[in-house]
Simulated assay, not measured.
Amino acid sequence: MDPDTAAHRKRALRAELRERRQNLTTTERQTATAGLTRNLVDLATDLSARSVSAYLSTPMEPDTRPFLNWAHAQGLRVLLPISREDGLLDWTTGDGETETEGLFGLPEAVGELLGPIAINDVDLILVPAAAVDASGMRMGWGRGYFDKTLGSMEKCPPVYAVLFDGELVDEVPRERHDQPVDGAVTPTRIVQFT
C-alpha cells in the first residue's frame, strides 16, 4: 500500500473509531472498565510481571486507572510515559495519583524522569491503540511515540494493546514505521498474536 493511501485510510479509520468511542454510554464504559481491569490483572498475574509499562488513559480510552491502582497495591513497579519534543518517551514511576497535562494535552504522570531506556527493564508493556488487526498490527493515534519506542528496543518484553472490543479488526492500514504487538486486551478477552 502506498504511504499516501495508508495515511488517508488511517485518518478515516481513526475518525470512525473516535466517533464510536464518543457514543459509548456511561453504563457501557463502566462495564468495559470492570472487564478490562479483570483481564489486565489476569494478564499481569499470568506473566508473573513484577514491573509493567502502562499509561494514564484519557476519558475517551479504555480506563487503565483501576488496573494501575491494583498494580501499585500489589507492589508492581509501574512506568508511565512522559512525551518529549523529540518524539521519544521518557518514563517515570510517578505516585499513581499526581497527573499533569502533557505535551499534547494528554494526562501524564508526575515524577522523576528516568529516561527513554528505563522501559528496557519491564516485564510487560501496555500500549494504547486505536485498532489492532488479526495479525497483531497496531494502529495508534498518529504521533508515533510507541512505534518509535518499540522499534528501538533490543529485547522487547510482551507488548499488549489496550482497546475496546469493536477495535479488533480484520486489517489496519500499515506504514513502514508501524510496530506489531504480541497481544491485545479488551473488556471481554485477552488475545495473543504470537
Rank of each mutant, 00 (worst) to 15 (best):
R65S: 06
A129C: 11
T26Y: 09
L126W: 09
W91A: 05
L13Y: 00
I82M: 02
V127P: 09
G115R: 15
M60T: 12
R21N: 04
G136N: 04
T33N: 10
I82S: 08
T31E: 13
L150T: 05
I117T: 14
L68D: 07
T5G: 11
G151E: 03
D178P: 00
T149C: 12
V127N: 06
Q179T: 13
W141L: 03
G75V: 07
M60Y: 15
T45R: 01
P62I: 12
L17H: 05
K10V: 03
F193W: 01
L80R: 03
E171C: 08
I82G: 06
Q192F: 15
E28W: 11
E167A: 01
V169G: 05
A54V: 04
E171N: 01
L43K: 04
N23H: 14
N39T: 02
G87I: 01
L163P: 03
G96F: 06
T64C: 07
H8S: 15
T194I: 12
A34E: 08
I119M: 11
S48W: 07
P81Y: 05
L43H: 03
R77C: 10
E154S: 15
S135L: 12
V181Y: 02
S48I: 08
F146N: 00
S83N: 10
G136L: 02
M153P: 09
E85I: 11
M1L: 14
M1R: 13
V185N: 09
R84N: 10
T149L: 13
G140C: 05
D182E: 01
A12P: 12
G105Q: 04
E85G: 12
E99L: 15
